[in-house]
Design a protein around this nucleic acid. Structure first.
Lengths: 195, 195
DNA sequence: CCTTGAAGATACAGGATTGTATCTTGAAAA
DNA sequence: TTTTCAAGATACAATCCTGTATCTTCAAGG
């Protein structure tokens, strides 16, 4: 029996936990099932996390590491936003599904909400849509007045709704339609230059 | 000890089951908890349904009865939309949340998907946002050009996202903010009269 | 090579849930 | 009033999960 130690083992544990959550859901997300999937025993889990709730937070933080999100900087708000939406569409949908569909039980048991989990996992994460907009403002592409955080998050709200309707990745055509017919008009209303 | 019989008892059982699901989530949706909330015993439940999964389907069917949704007609797109959002916020969001957030465990256990259940719950109903917009167009309040179905559904996408993040009813102030800073500007861009 | 500490395996009590069985009680119909 | 059958109240074994404790085994640092 070959042993895994330290960080290497921890990676395997978190990977196994994530697979278990995605494939079997929160109801089957037991310490026993996670340990079995990682081919180890519950004791190893309890040495690292106090229980299921702490493990959930660790798993979400593990798979949602912001390091692997590259923030596009194309010089135009349209291309920035489309790029960011495509990245979210490709890579984050599994995470969003887990946070919403699979973790209902977690929220009930802990009395928390997805916002709370997000705060716990990303204490100081920058608001990326806000960043993209601020860069557009700095370029003089958009006027700062009345471009609220709510407007900044509109494309992602629509992307998410689209995803929940189809449960499949959203097409690039739909992404561009959202940006061109919804988001940019909302920003263009306060454009510095333009019609 | 006063007894309830037949249909009257069944209503009480399904009401209790729905309350239990909404308030405590699927993880706490046990036959015992439902029976206790209905002030009866598990045997009564097992006489009617074979188990938890059958009870879930019965509850969803029970709550999703074709209750006539009052479609507001106030003479203004703003008031129509705000009224409709408040109605959705009060009545339908609870159901949507149950179908998506709370029932993740059900989908895993039964191997079904949210769309399967949604089809049963919402058979074919009119696209209410589209109706509100068409009436505004008929009044000459909004120009027909470029007011797409996607724009019509934007307020509800934002409402839904807001709800999913907090798992609580959305405030009226937020509803009005969505309408005034997002939806109406999108429509006003093609207004017949006005700035 | 030897020591150390964690990995890995196993056992255990406690608690919760399931599904069934059994019994008494009471509401409704004959 | 009497009969009937479901409601209601237990009780039960079986199963699962939790959290802890104990023991052996192995990888890494000294």
């Amino acid at each position: 029996m070959t042993k895994r130690l330290g960080a290497k083992l921890e990676q395997a544990l978190l990977d196994a936990a994530w697979e278990q959550l995605v494939e079997q859901g929160y109801a089957a997300f037991t310490m026993d099932a996670v340990a079995a999937r990682a081919r180890t025993s519950r004791a190893v889990l309890y040495r690292r996390w106090t229980g299921k709730h702490a493990l959930v937070r660790a798993v979400v933080a593990h798979v949602a590491r912001p390091d692997d999100v590259e923030i596009p900087d194309t010089g135009s708000l349209r291309r920035d936003t489309i790029s960011m939406m495509k990245i979210a569409n490709r890579g984050r949908l599994e995470l969003i599904t887990a946070l919403t569909v699979h973790l209902g039980g977690y929220y009930q048991e802990t009395g928390t909400s997805p916002v709370d989990l997000r705060k716990t996992v990303f204490p100081t994460r920058p608001h990326i849509p806000r960043m993209l907009l601020d860069r557009a403002i700095a370029r003089g592409e958009v006027a700062p007045a009345r471009v609220s955080d709510r407007i900044a998050s509109v494309p992602y709200a629509l992307l998410q709704q689209e995803f929940f309707m189809t449960l499949k990745p959203v097409s690039n055509a739909t992404i561009e339609e959202i940006v061109d017919t919804i988001f940019l008009p909302l920003c263009a209303r306060t454009r510095v230059r333009g019609p």
